[in-house]
Design a protein around this nucleic acid. Sequence first.
DNA 1: TAAAGTAGGAACGGAAAAGTAACTGCCTAT
DNA 2: ATAGGCAGTTACTTTTCCGTTCCTACTTTA
Lengths: 116, 116
Amino acid sequence: MPKTPPQCPMDSILRLLMGPWTTYIIWVLSDQGPQRFGALKRAVPGISTRMLTERLRMLQGAGVIWREQKQTIPPAVTYGLTSRGNDLRGVLDTLGHIAERWKDEGVFAEDEVGTA
Amino acid sequence: MPKTPPQCPMDSILRLLMGPWTTYIIWVLSDQGPQRFGALKRAVPGISTRMLTERLRMLQGAGVIWREQKQTIPPAVTYGLTSRGNDLRGVLDTLGHIAERWKDEGVFAEDEVGTA
DNA sequence: TAAAGTAGGAACGGAAAAGTAACTGCCTAT
DNA sequence: ATAGGCAGTTACTTTTCCGTTCCTACTTTA
């Protein structure tokens, strides 16, 4: 029972980006450059370590971000966007523009999308 | 406790597109033109009427699709993309290309995204 | 000695999303 | 007369996700 019919590969990619935090993480990494785990956590206010870890693993598994671990004594792990992540950047950027335009038009106002 | 920090409007739009079926519906409407409810349901294999209705309402609420109801005796309801929906089309198209490229590269293979 | 930071892992629990199934009312075709 | 299609709605159940909390092992600082 595939929820994602195979004809539509972009659904797979959306599943990847979908999570509540995913795009935000990508945005931070693309806006502020590579970050360490703690810094990332601080940059994404409200996220739990569990979620952050999970999302990072997922993105890493998809090759969207890289992970560099330094085996120093307090281990230092840094994450950054790969070229594949930069692919996404453009799309997300465009989507962001659309989103802003829509927001100006009131699409996301509660009485329009919340009700109805 | 907003899961979507206000700084990131594209998260709102992704929330809109995210659902398991949403993009597929948009794709069908953009690929095959306006469709009636039943046709749409047949075109999106596996979706339940409940989900289809919900997604359509959501997309309609966001102004992504229009809904035209003819008060004939078996009521005929047709859905189609609005100009706003066509905004999305471009992005989804790009995303689709990326997704296909990634798929060719094996990003979505289980051993890459499932394991890790 | 105790607290805090580093980068997570494991377990538990609630809430929201999604699927299933049954029902609506009206009409047409068999 | 009965089945089936139209376009859903409602209720029920399941699943899945997400957040919270506690834990690791080590080191530095107070």
